[in-house]
Nucleic acid binder design. Sequence first.
DNA 1: ATGCCTCGAGTTCA
DNA 2: CTCGAGGCAT
Length: 787
Amino acid sequence: MNASETSADPAQRAAELRTRIEDANYRYHVLDDAAIPDVEYDRLMRELEALEASYPELLRSDSPTRRVGARPAEGFAEVRHAQRMLSLANAFSDAEVGDFVQRIVERTGNAQPQFSVEPKFDGLAISLRYEHGAFVQGATRGDGETGEDVTANLRTIRAIPLRLRGADWPAVLEVRGEVYMPRAAFEAYNAKARAEGGKVLANPRNGAAGSLRQLDPAITAARPLAFYAYAPGDVAESELPSTHSAFMTRLRDWGFPVSHLVETAHGLDGCLDYFRRIGAQRDALPFDIDGVVYKLDDLGLQRELGFVGRTPRWAIAHKFPAQEQTTRVLAIDINIGRTGAATPIARLEPVQVAGVVVTNATLHNADQIRRLDVRVGDSVIVRRAGDVIPEVVRVMPELRPSESSKWQMPTHCPICRSELVQEEGQVVWRCSGELICPAQQKESIIHFASRRAMDIEGLGSRLIEDLCDLGFVASVADLYKLSLDDFIEMKRRADERDGTTPETVKAGKVASKWAENLIEAIDHSKQATLERFLFALGIEHVGESTAKVLANWFGTLERIRHMPWPLLKLLPDIGGEVGRSIDHFFAQAGNQRVLDALLEHGVSLKDEHDVSAKLAARLGIENFLVQLEIPKLTELRAKQFAAVGQSPEQLAELPSHPLISAGLPADTVAAWLDWHADAANATLYQRSAAAWNALRELAASVSASAATLPLEGKTVVLTGTLSSMSRDQVGAKLEALGAKVSGSVSKKTDFVVAGEAAGSKLDKAQALGVEVWDEARLLEYLKGQGA
DNA sequence: ATGCCTCGAGTTCA
DNA sequence: CTCGAGGCAT
């Protein structure tokens, strides 16, 4: 230590050191100035620490040495934001930005509105609260209303001032901004972690988010995080200047880092020009961005324009197109799905695309490959569609190796060697092995056990694969035969096969606990709802929605499994194709045996019910099913055939046919009679008798229709993440009120419930002018309905 | 026949 | 999330 620097008074010296350290932070983070060298900075810190250690009375909570504090006892406390944290609407094209600007021009009457424009940082949004110039609390966005208190972690970020500079700040100041990890720091951190065998971070954004959620601030302190401020939070209106850009200047004066890329722009042209300039620099920037943000500069006008749902009308994020990368196709494999669909998959040389390493990309189908002319060995451009699923955009033919040949769909299933066939007029190729193909068996069992079907916890794809490969199960019914010992034996053999250390033998207790849990989960799944069970069966074309239709309209498994397709076809959303597929499934003796076995092993449906009056009306039961018994129908068929010859087409022409006058579509009647004419359907015809009789009996006791529900006839779409309930739970509640919950937005949608991080569906709703409810509105409504 | 609107199925990665 | 295709109104 240099004697000339050493002040005689320790208190004075401590203050001096703090000022120098804070200045160094300010100059480095806010002014982008070459600050003092690291060694010098470290020396100052050590000196201050030593001083504070010898004179504890000098300690202050806002000292730079106190950035790393104690860890919170458990988890993070919740923080209610004094002012809601916004999320922005997204624009992906110039036209969408044009619409946005146009709306503002119309509402404000200003032809060239001024915008404050800035890069959109790819990090984590946070809110910082200062009282009397001191940093008191910081929180994540959370759902916008309530976030997590990460004050201790934020204190460790040197770019965040612990005390404001100057003196003209408001008594209470909340500032919004983005915590991010600079690319260089991210690389350096990972290089070090790799060298030391530590955990590497996936990408700068995950790095920032993960670091802030560390319970131990010491860990956060070791992560190279930075911060940019970009908006006011809870600040008295009287304390704000008249424009956003003026506020940004003030933030910088108070000691907050504000990006130097922030500018003002005029009108649409100014915004788009800024977008292109930033786009051109994007790769050269020291941090990741995913677009730019335009904010109407006049704060008074901002207040006037207000919000639509949870997004402001006065700001929008203009996103860059999904990031693209080039890589090489190592191989094109075929994957066999649950229904036998053969999907080609490109195995790629690992490449970073928009932050994650991509090694596989779907090629969808043979047509797609032909269109793109993808060949093994090709260099291709890969992008993440909607920033999630990787896809091959195009081939770079100039980089194609000299001897390459067009890719051809294999003729046989890679798993069971059965022939691959393409149905007339369809794009997909399918493995013809059906029930004997191990790939299809596995996939259908995986589907059966999956969360949205029978929800057997712990029974995932890995485990099912082993169970199948080692011969413990071949059908879903076998799952219910498995014993504790089976699981342990299976695990032992799997370990043996893989040559892995049989940890489970060492720890026999662990293995048996694991197996017990599985048995328990399988047992638990025996109590299923009819709709989930039907969905779990994996009938082609029968997804969750169609399963629900079947369950609601027919009410019992017994009826459904014996229902002939002309009757299935009468239900909404079930046409010829789907009806035939259901019929085909139940017509196969193997499937009926599996069903019987499942029931025998104790699978039972807890919500079987009698069909509603609606069903009776739909089927016209009173009109004709009651009157027409099966022998009568046969007799009728014979008569009609005799009357009009053998052609069902001609039969369909007859408007006077009793079935037609009973309200059935003519082609249904024709199909029904035609179906009966086929001797191969005789067995099914016999079985269907049970269903007919049940329906007929029911028709006799049809009562008045149920009271109408508040949301009857309304179509609702859910999107984004809701904080208080899962989307499924919300869906169930809305359905209980009579609403139909659909997956896609259209003009017919009555309203969209948008949670946090809502994506394209919200955009579409806004584009179509569909009503949008935020979570608060939804909860209020549900409360009002007593749900 | 045509053009929505939906649903089903397949897929990626941490 | 996206694509293909079934259902249904026009």
